[in-house]
């Protein structure tokens, strides 16, 4: 009986969570720029809004999106990203990303850095992110 209640509690928590998964950063040199990528899994019944990301590793940390127009690609800053209820939003190469501008240190593959993600009405989410060279 206790196990059943416990499982129900886990299920209830999972129904109302925001999870940050598969986070990684590109390697880059000190003084240059990089990008942070991750998935936001919104298991709640409400839209969730990511409006700010903080980190000590860069002078500026901004949410950007990459867009395509014909055969050209460009980037533009966005104020926030809304993650729909019961859905996963992927910050991924060639799409939305968190831009790390003017890095204060070299980002070497294998190292990890802390970021704080701010969601409206949900507060702060601290994550540790590895530097990866992906294919």
């Amino acid at each position: 009986m206790f196990s059943f209640i416990f499982l129900l509690m886990i299920f209830a928590v999972q129904q109302d969570t925001l999870q940050i998964e598969n986070a990684w950063i590109r390697p880059s040199s000190k003084g240059m720029n990089s990008a942070l990528y991750f998935d936001v899994k919104n298991s709640t019944d409400d839209p969730q809004t990511l409006y700010k990301v903080e980190s000590d590793i860069a002078k500026l940390v901004e949410i950007h999106e990459t867009y395509k127009k014909g055969d050209k690609m460009g980037m533009r800053r966005v104020e926030s990203v809304v993650i729909k209820p019961k859905s996963t939003f992927r910050f991924k190469p060639g799409r939305h990303h968190v831009m790390l501008i003017r890095l204060k240190q070299e980002l070497k593959e294998g190292s990890e850095y802390e970021f704080i993600l701010y969601f409206k009405n949900r507060g702060e989410y601290k994550i540790k992110v590895p530097v990866k060279r992906t294919n």
């Binding site: 720029n33 901004e62 395509k68 050209k72 980037m75 533009r76």
Partner: peptide, 19 residues
Amino acid sequence: EDTSYTDDGEAVYFFAHTD
């Protein structure tokens, strides 16, 4: 196309470009 400004006043600009 896109430019961001650091606290120390540097304008960091980004290009839109043919891919």
